[in-house]
Design a protein around this nucleic acid. Structure first.
Length: 377
RNA sequence: GGGGGAGUCGCAUAGCGGCAAUUGCAACAGACUGUAAAUCUGUCCUCUUCGGAGUUCGGUGGUUCGAGUCCACCCUCCCCCA
């Protein structure tokens, strides 16, 4: 994997770059649709490529390990072969699941995490080594280190201990990463994850530890877990300022369109979030003018297209009234249109941000867009 | 003409002396940030300063401290027999 910065913005920390993987190039800043179980919900891979123009998608170690299981993935020849997506894939390590399924987990720093499957209650151990092995089997282009994602709010003491565990696990991941080989002939990178909750000194400690590894990219985790938005920006800003400039920075799990533009300005290169897909399924559409709740009565007889000037087919051929009808009638096509619309919009958002960075007009554009993007229509 | 059954907040249902009244659907609104989410929550008789207040269960009377629930008559609908 390679990363080059093409252009840095003068009025902010934003940058436009290119990541090169064995499955193709990724132009940054980029948004990565989430495909937890090897599928981005409610959308075909060919629409994801040709209509949404996604350049990279996510998969999830925890979920794929439980279903269909590594036997099937390995027999298929890796996730790319299994699901038909031939562009880059990034896999989350399961660290977030350790956090979100915390009622069935037991953290043992020396081993890893014992957890119960949310599907059948069976007990499993995730260790840093095992998580690397699983991601080798999945064959993702970018693998993530196994971390613990502390909740918010979180005491300093808990955050400190949690970070020590995460850093210990990171060293084991890193060691095992170098002791193992890719299985399918393409190279794989491993990204460490900065933790430290909302405490700057812990974030600094985390970054300093990670920088020594000289990894091909770095992720910022433990953000957008319920803290105020300003605090999210403050933490992202703090991390970006002390992270190396020549490595891509991935802000995990963020966010709203406004969040994404603000974090691009702070120097973030990669984003993933379930929001566009989930909200799209639930009837909330993101547009350049703001947010539309398509279930609302006000669209009942609005026969204008979602967006007549869009390059997305669905935006041009379907009207607001029709989409509202699909959602209220419980037709599957509604969530499908919502999904493709939102993901396409998110990709347009980061692509446009990239253009503005290259043109040198990013900051002005961003400041104009942020209030609009949050407006409720 | 005779016999039997039923009328509850948009629709459908529960209710068998203490009820503004069950549940489902529909409707309306909200939530959703490394996906246990095609999910979840709220409102859903009227008014409300969210503490309450006022009117309700086909209609009219009655019994009772108290009636959607019991009684009488009336209206409407359904089923069976002629």
């Amino acid at each position: 994997m390679q990363f080059i910065v093409e252009k840095s913005d003068e009025k902010s920390s934003a940058r436009a770059g290119v990541i090169t993987t064995d499955h193709g190039k990724i132009q940054t800043p980029i948004f990565m649709p989430v495909g937890t179980l090897g599928a981005v919900k409610a959308i075909h891979m060919y629409d994801l490529k040709d209509e949404v123009k996604a350049q990279i998608i996510l998969g999830n170690t925890y979920h794929l390990y439980l279903r269909p299981g590594m036997g099937v993935i390995e027999a298929a020849g890796g996730l790319h072969q299994f699901n038909g997506w031939d562009r880059p894939i990034l896999t989350d390590s399961g660290g977030f699941q350790v956090f979100s399924l915390s009622n069935t987990r037991k953290i043992k720093p020396d081993e890893g995490v014992w957890f119960q499957s949310h599907i059948d209650g069976s007990r499993h151990l995730f260790s840093p080594e095992k998580v690397i092995d699983i991601q080798r089997t999945i064959g993702s282009d970018i693998m993530m280190a196994f971390d613990e994602c502390p909740p918010y709010p979180c005491t300093y003491e808990y955050a400190r201990k949690s970070l020590d565990i995460t850093l210990g696990w990171l060293d084991r991941c890193w060691k095992h990463f170098h002791e193992t080989e890719p299985k399918y002939g393409h190279s794989q990178a491993l990204f460490p994850i900065v933790q430290g909750s909302t405490y700057k000194d812990l974030r600094t400690k985390s970054v300093e530890h990670i920088v020594k590894l000289d990894s091909e990219g770095v992720a910022i985790g433990g953000i957008a877990v319920g803290e105020p938005t300003d605090m999210m920006y403050e933490m992202a800003d703090h991390c970006c300022q002390i992270l190396p400039k020549d490595k891509p920075r991935y802000l995990m799990g963020v966010g709203t369109p406004a969040n994404i533009l603000e974090n691009i300005a702070l120097g973030v290169d990669m984003f993933d979030c379930v929001m566009p897909a989930r909200d799209g399924r639930h009837g909330l559409l993101f547009t350049w003018d703001g947010i539309m709740n398509m279930k609302n009565e006000k669209w009942k007889a609005d026969f204008t297209p979602l967006d007549a000037s869009s390059d997305l087919t669905a935006d041009r051929i379907y009207t607001r009234a029709y989409l509202r009808h699909l959602y209220t009638a419980g037709e599957m096509l509604g969530p499908m249109i919502g999904t493709i619309h939102n993901l396409h919009f998110y990709l347009q958002l980061v692509t446009t941000a990239r253009q503005k960075i290259l043109e040198g007009t990013f900051t002005e554009w961003k400041n104009l867009m942020v209030p609009k993007l949050s407006t409720r229509l």
